[in-house]
Design a protein around this nucleic acid. Structure first.
Lengths: 201, 201
DNA sequence: AAAATCATGTCACGGTCTGACACCTTTGGT
DNA sequence: ACCAAAGGTGTCAGACCGTGACATGATTTT
């Protein structure tokens, strides 16, 4: 009994294992037979559990396929900025995204999802929908602790997610086409082009 | 029979009428009982048609609730720009949005949807998903007929839709709170704040 | 008026997702 | 070691969304 954390960890570990297993099976199946043709029944069968249990781990089919957005949300919402103006905060958030992008790109799941995104345009719509959570969480966090107006906070949140999405989508296409390139440089180029959309008057 | 165009118009007119009727019923029901509680069956019953027929007019429940995005897509994709650089094209597109925003705001459906958006956050996610079509159509149109790189075209399309969404969301909140304000000025302020996110270095 | 076209209703089906219940395992305490 | 509470799982039932096939009646064309 001296180790409560360990006993508690058993279930958590099992849960984490299950989460990974279900997502892995989902990715396998979508790669094999496409998104539309892949049902919850297929996923459950491959993992060896019941359909009902799949929904106990992921709230929806979409979530099982791409649960990764949560880490982006957490990282950005928790990141503090030293700046007080909207433009400075935006710069800091983009820098955080840059780091996280480099980390994500190193994971095989991220690359598998990226390749799938090119084949299945529906997945981009799923991403866009999920990233609403990011915009809401980030903008409300900004408005609550910063000197930003609601409209500024919304814009910052929208622009950050837009940059992430563009960099990701571009990376996905290159990955799909087999082009080798530095993902961080790709992200930097995205931010550079974004800035050049608003030239000094 | 001397007027063929009139006979052709009967079905089209009936169809347009049906489209309006179904959307109206959907708005009514969502206002009354919320989005989750409103089913296709409810909508069909209120209009006096079968559930199957509802899907012959709108591909989904979401589409029946907010079919308006299509006009935004068509307008932006068809708009030509005199400029060759990305920033100029972006400016032109934002100007087109500004005009369209003024027109939309004048329609009662747009205002009803706006008020509902505040009550039903799910609708914002639906909008975000639908606007994927805009980003795809607009960016591919830009890349096809303009001197923009794929990454530039994507960024321009994303930024335009982000600005539209922020202005709309802000308008919706004001509308919901009963604040009277000039919508066009609101849109202009959004664009102004957007520009100030990227100060002259 | 006859034929082709279109709109609608009905029926049937597969798929997503949720709630309720029973069963078994893990957990924490004695 | 035993027990009770809590958590995970399967089964069952059900609501809802969306699609295909077919028959029927109205519209349009010839």
């Amino acid at each position: 009994m001296r180790e409560k954390s360990r006993t508690l960890g058993i279930r958590e570990e099992h849960r984490a294992q299950m989460l990974r297993e279900i997502q892995g099976a989902t990715l396998d199946l979508v790669e094999e037979q496409g998104l539309d043709a892949t049902t919850i029944g297929d996923i459950a069968a491959r993992v060896g559990i019941s359909e009902r249990t799949v929904f106990r781990y992921y709230g929806s089919k979409e979530h099982a396929l791409m649960p990764g957005q949560q880490s982006l949300i957490d990282t950005l919402v928790c990141s503090e900025s030293a700046h007080a103006e909207a433009s400075g905060i935006l710069g800091d958030l983009l820098a955080v995204c840059r780091e996280l992008f480099a980390l994500e790109v190193a994971q095989s799941d991220f690359r598998r999802i990226s390749r799938l995104m090119v084949r299945e345009p529906e997945m981009l719509r799923i991403v866009a929908r999920q990233e609403r959570n990011l915009v809401e969480a980030l903008s409300s966090a900004l408005v609550q602790r910063g000197p930003l107006s609601p409209i500024q906070a919304l814009l910052v949140a929208e622009v950050v997610t837009a940059a992430w999405r563009v960099a990701w989508q571009t990376f996905a296409r290159q990955e799909f086409d087999g082009v080798e390139s530095d993902p961080v440089e790709l992200f930097d180029e995205t931010v550079r082009e974004l800035g050049s959309l608003f030239p000094r008057a």
